[in-house]
């Protein structure tokens, strides 16, 4: 058996006893504009930003509002701007921001409901607009015939794009959304791409048109901020590039389908 990890057993020296967080506070019913409030909390080496917020809420100020759920980077609820970069609060360590203070703000490019809580209604609409489901060719055999055959290699074609957890970090990082809020956006395009690359799908140009219907996709200049901030290693920038390419191909070739 391998020896227990030295990393695991080591007690980390404390670089500081406390750390400061500057958290955005905003209640539209009472405040004219958002403001920052600073909290000084006990510091532990293994604390993530979400732990810090939970500590503040339980021990200092029960009114601080933010979303969270799973604590393990899979539900995508706790997106927030940490020192200016969109991150998941549960996956970003305070130790990377020593000695602080750590600036915690709501994700940009969304209306704020309260404090760090954003309004995601527009995103939910964008998601369903790209027809995120397998479109059949109308010749589905009965269930008893079993599953579609799909080889591991065919799964690999789109697997990466299926990892999206709808955390909104890519929308917060997207320079196009900032100017053109109607842009369907990185996650939705990645989702469209996920279905277009799926060997079970027969959408042809259908889904592609819903994505390229608005001009905004052409404003994307492949800056790649969306892919850089993605906590799950999805590459929406690649999806956007591929979509532009397919779309151009479709215009040139009238019979052009989506290549798989």
């Amino acid at each position: 058996m391998a020896a227990p990890s030295q990393e695991l057993l080591r007690s980390n020296p404390l670089p500081a006893d406390t750390i400061q967080l500057s958290v955005t506070r905003y209640d539209p019913a009472q405040d004219a504009a958002p403001r920052q409030q600073t909290y000084e909390i006990p510091y532990r080496d293994d604390m993530v930003v979400l732990d810090a917020l939970n500590w503040i809420k339980t021990h200092m100020d029960g009114s601080v509002s933010y979303r969270w759920s799973c604590r393990m980077g899979i539900c995508g609820s706790c997106g927030m701007n940490v020192n200016g970069t969109p991150r998941l609060g549960c996956s970003v360590f305070l130790r990377d921001y020593l000695p602080g203070p750590v600036l915690v703000e709501p994700l940009p490019n969304f209306p704020v409901i309260r404090d760090l809580v954003i309004d995601m209604t527009s995103f939910m609409e964008k998601l369903s607009s790209v027809k995120p489901w397998v479109i059949s060719n109308g010749q589905e055999p009965a269930l008893a015939a079993g599953e579609h055959r799909q080889t591991p290699a065919q799964v690999e074609q789109y697997r990466q794009f299926s990892m999206c957890i709808n955390c909104m970090l890519c929308y917060a990082a997207c320079p196009v959304i900032a100017i053109e809020p109607h842009f369907v956006g990185p996650a939705a395009i990645a989702l469209a791409r996920r279905y277009d690359l799926d060997s079970r799908d027969h959408a042809g140009q259908d889904r592609l048109r819903t994505v390229t219907g608005s001009d905004a996709i052409w404003d994307c200049s492949f800056i790649g901020e969306c892919s850089a901030v993605c906590p799950k290693g999805v590459d929406p920038a690649k999806a956007i590039q591929q979509t532009k390419f397919e779309s151009t191909l479709g215009m040139l070739l009238p019979w052009g389908g989506v290549s798989k």
């Binding site: 489901w133 397998v134 589905e140 269930l143 079993g146 599953e147 579609h148 055959r149 799909q150 080889t151 591991p152 065919q154 799964v155 789109y158 697997r159 299926s162 279905y195 799926d198 079970r200 799908d201």
Partner: peptide, 22 residues
């Protein structure tokens, strides 16, 4: 089994065997 196959028809991604089965 039927419920899983149905989910697969709706588009769920699964790891596959070399033969392409779930």
């Amino acid at each position: 089994p039927e419920r899983i196959l149905e989910l697969e028809r709706w588009g769920a991604v699964f790891d596959r065997t070399e033969d392409g089965l779930i």
